[in-house]
């Protein structure tokens, strides 16, 4: 059995760790709340955007409207994978899951002879693939650590980088890999295509709308032009959703990880305290029996 002093020292240090993990849990919880609020705040905008886009596309279905961002390439030679993870660690399996999924996806693409470029957000993710000398996007480094407030200029810039490259033909497809936020304890890794844009059909949310006959809208300017204005904005909301979800998931993951760490530290302290008490009792018993033995020797 370990000696009393060592046990006391260990209990103290574990208690210190517990205090830190508890504080980190609190911080993550606060940040999570803020991130959740941001998702909530963005919902009306994205929801209305989907609605308007759905109305617009039903209205112009008869006409022929093409948008270069919607047109799939016949052959995908160059593929970008945008991966989003975090800049800080200690958030459970959050980063490693993304790292694994990005790697998997990239390898699959390479097997079908595609030239894969990784565009990574989050220092942990960036460092992992940078160290292994993967082909990274030239802007990756500056996006390795992003502003958590997600200013609109940042979203716009990121969207522009992708859409410009797509329109210039430098890239044929852009995929996203990120963590979708469902609740504080439930996150899901999603892998979806970003460019060319797919799935503009009305989502299930607008089911009640679908029954209605489309209105005879007045368009100003013409629907084609409206579409051209709306599509890049839609692309930006996809980027926004991705980053906002990922941030919320990160804080959720960290909160959970730190909660578990605090619990584990508590268990450890319990075990160690038991050991310490046993050790102390053993020392007392030993001392007593020595005294009694000594007294008996004198009287005897």
């Amino acid at each position: 059995m370990a000696n009393l002093r060592d046990l006391k020292r260990r209990i103290k240090s574990v208690d210190g760790i517990r205090q830190i993990t508890r504080a980190m849990e609190m911080v993550a919880a606060t940040k999570l709340r803020r991130a959740q609020q941001r998702i909530e705040a963005g919902r009306p905008y994205t929801g209305k955007m989907d609605e308007i886009l759905a109305h617009l596309s039903t209205a112009i279905q008869a006409g022929i409207v093409h948008h270069p961002l919607l047109e799939p390439r016949e052959e995908v030679r160059n593929l970008w994978i945008i991966g989003v993870a975090s800049t800080k660690g200690l958030c459970g399996s959050f980063n490693s899951n993304i790292i694994r999924t990005v790697g998997q996806h990239a390898r699959e693409a390479m097997e079908s002879n595609q030239n894969v470029t990784l565009f990574l957000v989050g220092k942990k993710l960036f460092d992992f693939y940078n160290r292994r000398n993967w082909q990274l996007h030239k802007n990756s480094r500056e996006y390795a650590a992003i502003d958590e407030n997600l200013p609109i200029s940042l979203l716009q810039e990121m969207t522009n980088i992708c859409t410009d490259a797509f329109l210039d033909g430098d890239v044929d497809q852009v995929d996203l890999v990120y963590t979708e936020f469902k609740s504080a304890i439930s996150h899901k890794i999603v892998k979806r295509q970003f460019l060319p844009i797919v799935g503009l059909e009305p989502t299930t949310d607008e089911e009640e709308d679908r029954g209605k006959t489309p209105h005879d809208y007045i368009f100003e300017p013409d629907p084609g032009k409206l579409f051209t204005i709306l599509i890049p904005k839609y692309a930006r909301t996809v980027i926004f959703r991705m980053l906002a979800d990922s941030l919320a998931s990160e804080h959720g993951g960290r909160m959970n990880a730190m909660h578990n760490a605090t619990d584990n530290a508590g268990d450890m302290i319990k075990t160690l305290t038991l050991q310490r008490n046993k050790a102390r009792q053993a020392a007392i018993t030993k001392e007593l029996s020595e005294i009694v033995g000594g007294a008996e020797a004198i009287s005897g």
Partner: peptide
């Protein structure tokens, strides 16, 4: 401020979509 100039909306306006 519409892209092609200012516009005004009153109640019961006809369905309209503009940037």
């Amino acid at each position: 401020p519409g892209v092609d100039g200012y516009l005004g909306i009153l109640a019961n306006h006809a369905p309209l979509m503009t940037a």
